[in-house]
Design a protein around this nucleic acid. Structure first.
Lengths: 381, 381
DNA sequence: CTGAAAGCGCTTACAG
DNA sequence: CTGAAAGCGCTTACAG
């Protein structure tokens, strides 16, 4: 089990150096011939000392394979370098990108993150909240599935900074959510740039704030371009499903040709897919006849659509990272103003809008770069 | 920020009880009028003492809102009640169910789990492995995307128990993976029970062990029923994509009617979906003419398929929970034999196989063939 | 039954 | 520049 180097191991092991036991700073100090406090300072770049001494300690540490005990350090420094991620999304559509971004940003700074998948059960929430307190996390990220719902209804005073991500936050709290208005604008402006003029919008249920915001973005972009059609009828809120997109696509043919949209901005990728299926089935060519933009950049849908879907990516990974960084500032006592931050989305251009004349293509257009092209959904292996 | 109760707060706060500071066991002891060691024992149900004393301590603890400091406890008990989850799957298809199951099972036992999303970058792996050691986790779960790939190629001696989940493990290690052979049998036996006789198999690339195993299960089930067709041609390995399923579905019509399968067992849900689309598009009715079973129970696909897909669920949540429990045993020093455990899958019956004669129907099964006879696009959801 | 002491592995003033 | 001492918040033998 142990494959420690055999060099420098001539003397019989003293009690502090018992084989299999973890090597502590005492071992390092002894090996380097200094006191424990000096060893500590040397290892932590603190205080002044001879370069020679510092080096000797460092050498001893690597030689012995010293790993500092973060628990002990946390106990004295009152800082555990851990944070908690409490998420209600056990399915993972939103949480995993957020968690991955958070985890990566934190790992670089020596901070580890506890995952608490609580779903919606209040007792799970309580248990995990308590665990986080016992474990002395420095702060907490609370992540949800909807920007208009709180994950924890009555958050008790935790005595630590908290940031809400992709979820609702109350007055005085700090929240990070995707900028839905901006994301929608990205999509619609892209369509306009490509020469589309009759741009319809299909989306999910209106009781989602995201639906309202994306519709606003759509409207604003159209208005800016002087393309806003009269009447509210052109926005079609419905369901988040493929079936709904399909149904709308079928209704496309009920309208006289002159009234048919030449583009659709969809509230999510599933709707876009259903829509494209219906249009294609009806003999309409996407993107030649009708352009389609989705929302979410859910690879699985976006890449499987024929043609591959141009769609808005909410950059949830960045969102997680940004939230984590701000949490760190809070932990460091830096002043951070409350309120919700709407983080920018980005448009991923594939082929469902054609190229038009804008020359908007990116190198990776029509697909993600190789590295990201994983065997998604490849059921295990 | 602090909303401590105001009762029992008459005396001016002593230095150990400064407002805003966390209350420690010393505070509890003082409040209860006992020593710290007695307080500790009372709170931990250890040693013998008057019920009266124990109660007094407990009361003081709740009154003061005492939360034990797990860091301090870990330092002395050499047990942190934390484990690490290192996962290469940043997309989340497999990790999140596993993580959720693990997290839930551990939370019930006071164990918290660190999430380390490392992707495939070796430096991320190293950083996170080191962080887990510094944080003194009691054990590590390493989760992957494929049962035939190691997540960490050369795992250094960590000095802590490790369990591999949904990933390859080496001789002498412990692994938890879904039972692919069993899962396949579940699917095929279901089809047989429903009266299907010519059951084809479509799956992903043959360099996936999962593909090989599922094919084995398919073959075994057929053989048991005396339905094994001669020649290896009836297994069609290809890609994990919808496009591949669609392509196979199209080839269905190239064969003479007498040679056409009356059922397909698909290696994943995406293939199944593509297949169903192609069959429906060609006028074949699913399940009346051809039954289809998928694999993964990826809700998004399984529920969106027309008709909703009967599919194999790998029970990844259970897998995560089971792995965690075994890790706990390892941590407790209990003997656990090495090797890989293949955990059972379960069949989720929806409507893509019809009811047949086996009386296997559930209330929502058995849609009218007419309703199900829909063009390709209707396979939205 | 209860408490004083030592110690988990570190860091941090404070002396020398 | 270096080290002895105290202490972070707890638990665990060991005395009383």
């Amino acid at each position: 089990m142990d494959e420690k180097t055999f060099s420098h191991r001539d003397e019989p092991p003293k009690d502090e150096e018992r084989v299999g036991e973890r090597v502590t700073i005492r071992d390092v100090a002894k090996q380097a011939g200094v006191s424990v406090s000096t060893a500590s300072k040397a290892l932590n770049e603190r205080g002044r000392m001879t370069a020679e001494t510092r080096d000797r300690v460092r050498q001893a540490a690597t030689q012995l394979g010293f790993t500092p005990n973060a628990l002990a350090r946390a106990l004295v420094s009152q800082r555990s370098f851990t944070i908690g991620l409490l998420t209600s999304d056990t399915y993972g559509r939103f949480t995993l990108p957020i968690a991955a971004g958070l985890s990566a940003a934190m790992a670089d700074r020596g901070v580890s993150v506890f995952l608490c998948a609580v779903g919606d059960a209040q007792d799970r929430i309580d248990i995990n909240l308590r665990a986080m307190q016992e474990k002395c996390v420095d702060g907490l990220i609370i992540a949800g599935k909807r920007i208009d719902r709180r994950v924890v209804r009555d958050l008790p005073p935790l005595g630590m900074p908290v940031i809400h991500v992709n979820a609702a936050s109350a007055e005085g709290e700090i929240g990070f959510v995707p900028d839905d208005i901006g994301g929608a604008r990205l999509a619609v402006e892209h369509l306009i740039r490509l020469g589309r003029r009759r741009i319809a919008h299909i989306s999910g249920p209106t009781n989602f704030e995201a639906v309202t915001l994306r519709e606003q973005g759509w409207r604003l972009a159209l208005d800016d371009a002087g393309l806003l059609l009269p009447g509210p009828a052109s926005a079609l809120p419905g369901e988040w499903s493929e079936a709904y997109g399909f149904a709308v696509g079928q209704r496309f043919f009920d309208r006289p040709s002159s009234e048919r949209p030449d583009a659709y901005f969809c509230g999510n990728d599933q709707i876009a897919r259903g829509l494209i299926d219906a249009l294609s089935f009806g003999g309409v060519c996407v993107p030649a006849d009708v352009a389609v933009v989705g929302y979410d950049n859910w690879e699985l849908f976006a890449a499987a659509t024929r043609p591959p879907l141009t769609t808005v990516d909410m950059c949830l990974t960045d969102l997680g990272g940004a939230a984590g960084l701000t949490l760190l500032e809070l932990i460091d006592g830096k002043p951070v103003s409350p309120g919700v931050r709407r983080q920018p989305c980005r448009l991923v251009v594939r082929q469902s809008c054609g190229t038009g004349s804008a020359g908007y293509a990116r190198p990776q257009m029509g697909g993600k770069p190789e590295e990201e092209r994983q065997p998604i959904g490849s059921s295990t292996g």
